[in-house]
Amino acid sequence: MKPATDPLAQLTEIRAIMERSSRFISLSGLSGVGAGVVALLGAGIGHVYLREQYGEQGFYRLLNSDQGQRMAILPFLLGLATAIILFALVVAFYFTQRRARQDGAVLWSSLGRRLALSLAIPLVAGGLFCLQLYMKSALGMVVPGMLVFYGLALLNASKYTLDEIRLLGLTEIVLGLVAMLLPGLGLAFFALGFGLCHIGYGLLMYNRYERTPQS
């Protein structure tokens, strides 16, 4: 006589199989922590550089600088932004690849490519838009624009991965909208949105999905 099967257990197993086939669930919380640390370091470097250039109120002075001053400092800002993105991607790739191997998943699968593309389109569009804001003297809207577009990218990608990404995306959008009202605190909002929020999200995800329960 065959043992009775638990319908609830069967439904749970079916749901897990469907999630693995339709969503990339091997994102590592440590990727978020690492990216947040990189962003905080980048914000700190930017603060020190602007203070050396403009004095104690470096970022605020940059907002009120003339076109010549803005263009002179643009190569440094672009270089810093590029370094932050590259280091954050390296950290995210390392930890996510490690978790994907533990889960027996393939990182660069068709699902992974769709996730990357859904992130990349809003990010590239937002980066070009924010560069134009800088060139057109709307410096106070650059950081809010970065936060809003990043939040939209996360929302766009959330349909391919964990639901918590949607919450992080909404948080980034709200921070961007608030930052529009306080342009002089743009660097602080950058550190909060890309740094502390990433770290908080990463710790939440690590404790929820990756941390080994204590026996």
Score class of each variant (00 low, 15 high):
residue 3 P to H: 13
residue 5 T to I: 12
residue 6 D to N: 14
residue 6 D to F: 04
residue 7 P to D: 03
residue 14 I to P: 07
residue 23 R to Y: 01
residue 24 F to H: 02
residue 26 S to V: 03
residue 30 L to V: 09
residue 31 S to I: 10
residue 33 V to Y: 11
residue 33 V to A: 10
residue 39 A to H: 06
residue 39 A to K: 04
residue 39 A to M: 01
residue 40 L to A: 09
residue 43 A to Y: 02
residue 52 E to R: 05
residue 53 Q to D: 04
residue 54 Y to D: 00
residue 62 L to N: 07
residue 63 L to Q: 04
residue 64 N to V: 03
residue 70 R to N: 01
residue 72 A to L: 03
residue 75 P to E: 06
residue 76 F to Y: 06
residue 79 G to H: 03
residue 82 T to L: 11
residue 84 I to M: 11
residue 99 R to K: 08
residue 100 A to I: 04
residue 100 A to P: 08
residue 101 R to L: 14
residue 101 R to S: 10
residue 102 Q to L: 05
residue 103 D to V: 00
residue 104 G to W: 10
residue 105 A to E: 11
residue 109 S to L: 09
residue 112 G to T: 05
residue 112 G to Y: 03
residue 118 S to R: 13
residue 120 A to S: 11
residue 126 G to T: 01
residue 137 S to C: 05
residue 139 L to Y: 05
residue 139 L to C: 09
residue 141 M to S: 15
residue 141 M to W: 14
residue 147 L to N: 04
residue 148 V to R: 08
residue 164 E to Y: 12
residue 165 I to V: 15
residue 168 L to I: 12
residue 168 L to R: 12
residue 171 T to R: 12
residue 173 I to W: 06
residue 176 G to F: 01
residue 178 V to R: 10
residue 182 L to G: 02
residue 182 L to V: 08
residue 183 P to W: 06
residue 184 G to T: 08
residue 188 A to Y: 15
residue 189 F to E: 06
residue 195 G to V: 08
residue 195 G to Y: 06
residue 200 G to E: 14
residue 201 Y to A: 14
residue 202 G to P: 07
residue 213 P to M: 02
residue 214 Q to F: 05
residue 215 S to A: 09
